[in-house]
Design a binder for these strands. Structure first.
Lengths: 249, 249
DNA sequence: CGGCAAATTGAGCATTGTCAATGTCTGTGG
DNA sequence: CCACAGACATTGACAATGCTCAATTTGCCG
């Protein structure tokens, strides 16, 4: 729970009452197995989810049966704050790996946000950043070739995981199969394989099992047409905040 | 200004003080010519924009010079509420047609939202719906073929314009060139032309100048794999709901 | 009527998809 | 410790959707 507090305090300055109410927010910790559903398209969810450990993703399936992954969530991400404000889920959320999820009743979340507008703003900023990432994905899938797309995904994961404190700077565990990578990039698994292999062969990345090591960050960045402005990392140190208690949770 | 009030009242129940403050929100009305910029990527905007008349769109350009349109805004849309909360614009906003735009100082918007959480929630819901549309676009561009993509765009415009009261049910003015449609769908203008022509030839739509008439809505819907859940139109007539009791907090 | 932007069309091509086989790794049960 | 199953990765041959290039037509506006 202190994890949630830390997250919110990064985005806004809280008074004591707000901090107390936030810490009092009731929640349940759930464990999900790999590929189980947290939310199904069409649900009217009564709970909002925060990733404590593990990874999840959001997806949609077309009538033709093709799947598109819309977003990947990492530890610390508030997955579906919109559950508290929209009536119906328009896509599904699934566990990418086994994971622990903290769940909050949407009614409680709404009450908290109405009582403390600063908290609402903090959550809102979070959801705006996700919206920004969605837009970058539209551009990525719509206007970049396969090689660039995959490289871009790899860069995004690297930055996000690093900022979340889940990975070293240029090396991380990527728990996605090539099929899932393809579903995220709008490509077939076969082609993902070709591209990954090519990047590996050129020496910009290095793959061992599910681990990705970026051996030439400037090179990959260039290939990827990657600019991290859209992640709005500048939103993090916005307030005169304490950064010292990095991982005290 | 009453337009803005109406819009907000669709999403939340306001008390008299909130209504008064909202109506007092200072703004300037600007006119923009076709294809002029409202916001440029990299700006640190001090104003948020509401479309009063005309159309605008949001876009990004890749290093290779390809443009991707990320969103189209129609009268009544709050274009960039995120200007009030994020530090830097990660994409540009341009006028699709000559248009009138109401602009609000971000500081005023922030103050209003802090004073009246119900108003913040209303705006937030709006931005969550746009995020939902972004996700649908990711799926559309990532996993549907050209024909389906274009049909989907046409369906989306039809519904949105109708709900905004800007167009009749199955007939509307589409002020986009085929090149712009292509930039929205991740296709080349040449291919957009072929697809449009094909749909026209099959008799599901009818084009005259920039006007689109949908002559076979069920047919187009089917071709488009279109389901309007993601537009969250059910959020509009939500008055006597549990939401209101919460707002009293 | 001339000029321009946009739409249309055709021919050839390439990036990416499809299909199908094979290789590799990991965990499990014997 | 080994054999085996199953999931995933890799590869190759071939096809096709959508792109490029380039010409031409259409429609609008002064």
């Amino acid at each position: 729970m202190t994890r949630l507090l830390r997250k919110v305090e990064r985005r806004a300055t809280l008074d004591d009452a707000a901090r107390a109410d936030l810490l009092d927010l009731p929640y349940k910790l759930h464990r999900y197995d790999r590929s189980s559903y947290l939310v199904r398209e069409g649900d009217q969810p009564q709970r909002s989810c925060l990733v404590v450990s593990g990874f999840t993703y959001r997806q949609k399936v077309t009538v033709m049966g093709a799947r598109q992954i819309l977003s990947v969530y990492i530890p610390g991400d508030f997955i579906d704050i919109e559950a508290a404000l929209l009536n119906i889920a328009d896509d599904s959320i699934q566990a990418l790996t086994a994971c622990e999820i903290a769940q909050f009743a949407t009614a409680d979340v709404r009450a908290l946000m109405c009582a403390h507008p600063q908290i609402a703003l903090a959550f809102w900023i979070d959801s705006l950043i996700f919206a920004s990432i969605f837009r970058e994905w539209i551009a990525n899938i719509g206007r970049r070739d396969a090689r660039t797309r995959i490289a871009h995904l790899l860069c995004e994961f690297a930055r996000r995981l690093e900022v979340a404190g889940v990975a070293e700077e240029y090396r991380y565990e990527l728990p996605m199969t090539q099929e899932q990578l393809g579903d995220a990039a709008g490509l077939t698994p076969v082609h993902v394989n070709r591209v990954l292999r090519e990047l590996d062969g050129e020496g910009v990345i290095n793959r061992t099992k599910r681990q990705i090591e970026i051996t030439d960050w400037p090179g990959l960045r260039l290939i990827a047409d990657f600019n991290d402005t859209y992640l709005h990392l500048d939103q993090i140190p916005r307030e005169p905040q304490h950064q010292s208690s990095r991982d005290a949770a």
